[in-house]
Design a protein around this nucleic acid. Structure first.
Lengths: 337, 337
DNA sequence: TTGTAGGCGTTATCAG
DNA sequence: CTGATAACGCCTACAA
């Protein structure tokens, strides 16, 4: 547990000099002292005490990845298979830039700001933020924030998003092009100005363009747990007025597909299914799942780069990146032209 | 950003008294002062500066969840769908007990100990530790450590594991009971004294008990990425000397199943498949996947409870918990008796 | 080129 | 019951 003082004593210089060397303020120290100090640092195995640094500098190099717990959401973001896909790439990039990642779930805005002040948190990642009280708190926070998959914007935040509208449109349009017109829409709760609502608007747009009347009874808002999604598949299988389903998440699509199949019907012969995200699962189901692809690890990487630019006060060219989607044709959609 | 000093000034007492109240050392403070201080704390929105606490106490309430990066493992544990399942429950329980969770990937033991000293880390979670140099470092660490899924033990660590041997045995025995004798074993690299090797031993034991000779050409060690697992399924489908496969992970089993099906063969008619873990995916494939169940969130919860007991110096009844497995029969195994 | 000194917010010791 | 005071490790004016 050696400290700067130990190094200073060992070398026979003052703490200031050691500190200067550690921070690369080479101009003020003789070359010889620098090497002697560096050697001693290695020999004694000195590592900085971040608490002490944090205390004196009011910043910590701690980045929070926040998961907003709502009353009906007991799961944290971390458990969601899609989001966990990019947390690894976030940790990696942060680490390579000298930052540390804390995972934290919060229920209230008070929880959040307490957490931030507890640790002098330097920056934040947030996913799926809506235009609500929470967002207001965030916008007053005065630390760099990168929003992922959120349709809100503010001058001191950056956004990494996806062509959700286009994705919804593309999926639906594809089904229409294959001859479908009785197309169900399945998703979690459609909250205003969120990822899902954008995809929903895309769905409606495609219908509209093809002069297919929108029917609200074909919209199914569901939880994403496996039981519920399979049950939905069963219900869908019984209806005569549906030939295709657009599900806004692959796990939902897979559950629906399983439910349909368990009802003795077939995908895509009886009902076609298209998903969203292109997670690994898509290639493991039978039939394989046609879906809208997005690059989750890349999303994570972009988010970190944004945050690091903000933290290091680099100039930001844009405040927002919207990643492209693309259709991946597999086997779960049948042409009925 | 109010501090203890601010509170002290506002109330007209000393920092010491405020600190005493904050830490519930009620005996030394008058009831009236206590309420006045608490009121002011609420009014001013005081939250403790953890860096300052950490600095003076050499402990931080930070718990590290460490992911060991090896040269051939670029992925961090966090990306693994099975492990990410319990990280949420770990964060939750830690938080409820006043701890904070840092995620960190390390390559070397030096990385690890630097990290620990950077933050005065109070405790650690580790998964899949082997009897190697890394373990030696861990055992000299002198902070509470909880090992998950690791077949090494040490006096200052606790273990949360699973009946892996029994799981391997049960899966294989089940296949045998269904009339199979040409049973392949598929897994990631079998490292000595690891989860996989235990399951492998269980597999061999079951074969042995049934007087089925072990054939090393039926052992397939593979990476777990989707491409590779599907390719393995294809290879397996071409062989005449296999009627069943035991895969040590559901994602592997699912990939194999997909590969078999994509080769035009059928599961379970041509080849039976049994997995391990019982993740959600098992109910989404077609046929649904017969597997060995384990309770991942519960594993996480146990691990945290262990760690908290160690941290708070509660007496530990056992240093080790081995969670039970059980067979879940679904549709991917066919009786050929 | 190097050193001194004060302070970041908190806790603990000891004295009143 | 309450209050000074020193210390944790580090940083940064400012001084030499």
């Amino acid at each position: 547990m050696s400290t700067i003082k130990d190094i200073a004593n060992a070398v026979g210089v003052s703490c200031t000099t050691v500190s200067n060397v550690i921070h690369g303020r080479a101009g003020r120290v003789s070359a010889e002292t620098i090497t002697r100090i560096n050697d001693t640092i290695d020999k004694l195995g000195y590592v900085p005490n971040m608490s002490a640094r944090s205390l004196v500098s009011s910043s910590s190099r701690v980045i929070g990845m926040i998961s907003h717990l709502t009353s009906n959401t007991k799961e944290t973001i971390i458990e969601d298979p899609f989001h966990s896909a990019f947390i690894g790439s976030i940790e990696k990039t942060l680490r390579e830039n000298g930052y540390y990642l804390m995972l934290r779930a919060v229920e209230t805005t008070a929880d959040l700001s307490a957490f931030l002040r507890n640790w002098n948190v330097d920056g934040l990642f947030f996913t799926g933020v809506f235009q609500d009280e929470f967002f207001t708190t965030l916008s007053e926070l005065n630390i760099p924030i990168v929003l992922i998959d959120s349709y809100v914007s503010h001058s001191n935040m950056c956004n990494v998003g996806l062509e959700d509208y286009k994705g919804g449109y593309t999926a639906t349009r594809y089904l229409i092009d294959q001859g479908h017109s009785k197309i169900a829409f399945a998703s979690p709760t459609i909250k205003d100005r969120g990822v899902v609502s954008e995809r929903f608007l895309g769905y409606k747009k495609a219908l509209d363009e093809a002069s297919i009347p929108f029917r609200s009874e074909l919209v199914f808002e569901q939880e994403l747990d496996t039981e519920t999604t399979i049950a939905l598949g069963r219900r869908l299988a019984e209806r005569e007025d549906i030939t295709a389903v657009f599900a806004t998440a692959d796990i939902l699509a897979a559950g629906i597909m399983a439910g349909i199949q368990q009802s003795g019907k077939s995908v895509p012969s009886d009902i076609s299914v298209i998903g969203f995200d292109d997670i690994n699962l898509c290639r493991l189901t039978s039939p394989t799942l046609t879906t809208i692809h997005q690059d989750a690890p890349f999303k994570g990487k972009l988010a970190v780069n944004f945050l690091i630019d903000l933290l290091e006060k680099n100039s930001i060219n844009d405040r927002e990146v919207i990643l492209p989607i693309r259709l991946i044709e597999r086997e779960s959609v049948k042409s009925i032209k």
